[in-house]
Amino acid sequence: MCLGVPAKVIKIEDDHALVDVMGSRMYVGTIFVPDAKIDDYVLLHAGQAMTIVDEEYAKESMTEWRNLLDDRT
């Protein structure tokens, strides 16, 4: 359930934003992510941004996973 895709915020207008997914863009609602800023990534679902992606956490998560994999071998 709940197809979602990360999309980069390009432009903000009131409770709407123009977002970009690898070159395809769309105007989406930002009512659920009042703190979204330009250059943030948001998770897009059915025309609404549902959360802001925390890039630091994502990096950490990835580094941690890589380390775990590397340690394993």
Binding site: V5, A7, D20, V21, M22, G23, S24, M26, L44
Partner: peptide, 10 residues
């Protein structure tokens, strides 16, 4: 193309 990927993802 990236933009085609993007459109499909959305």
């Amino acid at each position: 193309r990236d933009a085609v990927h993007g459109a499909c993802d959305i």
